[in-house]
Amino acid sequence: MDLQAFFKMSYGLYVLSSAFDGKQNGCIVNTVTQVTAEPPKVAVAVSKQNLTTSLIERSGLFNAVALTEEATMDLIGRFGFRSGREEDKFAGIPHGADANGVWYPTETASAMFSCKVIDKLDLDTHVLFVGKSIEAVKLSDAPVMTYDYYHKVKKGETPPNAPSYKKPAEKHGWRCKVCGYIYEGEELPPDFICPICKKDASFFERI
């Protein structure tokens, strides 16, 4: 089986959010798709390790925001490579709330889909949630960011717990053990901070 064939599938880049008992959180995912039109239903796959997954399972609610090509690596790093168990990901950024009170980022957002979970499937490392859409809002006419654009133009990395993760090509330098960012150079400055996940030099390993 040629696993590289799967890389030809088209993906977007989304912030998936949920809330339960006063806790709001979101994470970056690339597998969000509409599965029926009438009524509109949306499916999303998310890692079992993510706090957002736990919030969805407990609340039965989620929303997904399609990011535009203008989305910054700081925003992507905040939601994609940091833990909501350690920080408030929504702190200090523009955000709105859907009809269920679940927050979502509004900056560089193209559209928001709010859903109520009607089914789920255990996928070993991930959970596939199927939600019936109860709200959909167009937020921008800007081009949406595809996963291919994220890699080729933004030079973004794929987190190890993403469905489409593949081991990076061999490089020399220092790799962040959290997000995979690579610092190319013989010596890593002791005060270096990862530009993606904001971890310090102690989280880097030589490669």
Rank of each mutant, 00 (worst) to 15 (best):
A136G: 07
L3A: 08
F7A: 15
K167R: 13
A169R: 14
V137S: 10
A19F: 09
E70K: 15
N161S: 06
F6V: 08
K138L: 11
G185L: 00
R85P: 02
V117A: 14
V44K: 02
D122T: 09
E184R: 11
N25C: 08
N100H: 14
L3D: 02
K41Y: 07
K23C: 09
I93Q: 01
K155F: 03
G101A: 02
T31W: 13
A71W: 10
A142D: 06
K199P: 00
E184D: 09
S140D: 03
I207G: 06
E205F: 07
N50E: 12
F192G: 06
D191I: 06
N25H: 07
S59N: 11
M1A: 14
A111I: 10
V127R: 14
E170C: 08
D119I: 12
W174D: 04
T158N: 10
K132Q: 15
Q34W: 07
E69T: 15
E87T: 15
I56G: 15
T125K: 11
A162P: 05
T146I: 01
C194P: 01
R206F: 09
P189D: 08
K132F: 09
Y147D: 11
T158F: 05
F129E: 07
S202G: 06
G80L: 09
E38D: 12
Y165G: 00
A71F: 13
D148I: 13
H151W: 03
V42T: 13
R206Q: 13
F113S: 10
P168G: 07
F81W: 11
V178D: 03
H95Q: 09
C27D: 08
C27F: 09
F204A: 01
H151I: 13
A201M: 01
F20A: 11
P160G: 04
Y147S: 06
V46A: 12
E187Y: 05
T36R: 15
S59C: 13
I93H: 07
S18L: 01
N63F: 08
D2M: 07
C179N: 12
E157S: 10
T106Q: 05
D98W: 00
I93W: 02
V127T: 15
A37V: 12
C115E: 01
